[in-house]
């Protein structure tokens, strides 16, 4: 085992450990000093997760959150120095974390917060001009073949729980009352988008989520509408498209020639 390997293993070990070969000027136990590094590493990794997932932390309390985050960090230290992306699979870890089983929505709240962090740092793009939208609307015959380039920050999430309502309840002053009004068992879907500097989170229907996912995958508008209608006959294209336009989610419109959709 190389010196750094022993050092790294001891930093992440559950039980306080001290690698060999360390000395102190006064002959005191190096383990006490090594603990500073252990603490630095664990606190910085846990803080990174807490910064990304403030609502998840509030839902379970700081002590519980830090315990889950510590277990996650030990088993899944970052693989890159770019910490903005740390914790991509943290939600999956929470899902399997037995002590959190009593809060079945917790993992999805963490998932939503991770997507929010992704959207926050995603590439910039300008929305298409109102003229381009007007042009599209003026020629209904070309609508089904139209394809959209969506904003790089756009993320879609579908949950069996009321994740958007749970998240939104934590954005105001009276979290307790807002939370009491949330039926956590209601399935919700979310659209996340950073059009300017702030990430907006919209509650959308499952059919709208399906619709946007297919647009995002590069399918024509007609195909995306058909697939959304197949998921839910009540799907309202005007409303869904209106949301994308208002939110600034559409960055480009193309009309491939001879497109069959």
């Amino acid at each position: 085992m190389s010196p750094h390997e022993a050092f790294a293993d001891s930093l992440l070990a559950v039980q306080p450990a001290c690698p060999p070969g360390l000395i102190t000027w006064n002959g005191s136990d190096p383990a006490r000093r090594f603990a500073v590094y252990r603490n630095n590493v664990m606190v910085s990794l846990i803080d990174a997760l807490a910064d990304t997932c403030p609502v998840t932390q509030t839902l379970v309390g700081e002590e519980f959150f830090r315990a889950v985050a510590a277990e996650y960090a030990r088993a899944n230290p970052p693989r890159s120095p770019v910490m903005a992306h740390y914790g991509a699979d943290f939600a999956g870890f929470i899902e399997e974390f037995a002590p959190a089983a009593g809060l079945p929505y917790l993992a999805d709240v963490a998932r939503l917060e991770m997507l929010r962090a992704e959207a926050y740092h995603a590439a910039d793009a300008e929305p298409v001009s109102p003229e381009a939208i007007a042009l599209l609307a003026a020629d209904p015959g070309r609508l089904p073949a139209a394809r959209f380039t969506l904003h790089p920050s756009l993320r879609i999430m579908e949950s069996r729980h009321a994740v958007v309502s749970l998240w939104a309840a934590h954005q105001g002053d009276d979290v307790y009352s807002a939370l009491a009004a949330v039926d956590t068992a209601l399935p919700e879907s979310a659209l996340l988008l950073r059009a300017g500097l702030d990430v907006e989170i919209y509650r959308i229907t499952a059919a709208t989520a399906t619709f946007i996912r297919h647009l995002q995958a590069g399918r024509g508008l007609g195909t995306a509408v058909d697939l959304a209608l197949a998921a839910d006959a009540a799907f309202d294209m005007t409303e869904a498209l209106g949301l994308l336009i208002r939110a600034g989610a559409i960055g480009g419109i193309t009309h491939p020639e001879g497109e069959q959709t």
């Binding site: 050092f7 930093l11 070969g21 693989r79």
Partner: peptide, 17 residues
């Protein structure tokens, strides 16, 4: 200092001999 080992990034400035 060092911070990475074996693919893991430890997010601290660690000492060298």
């Amino acid at each position: 200092a060092w911070a990475s080992h074996g693919g893991a990034f430890l997010n601290d400035l660690l000492p060298v001999p």
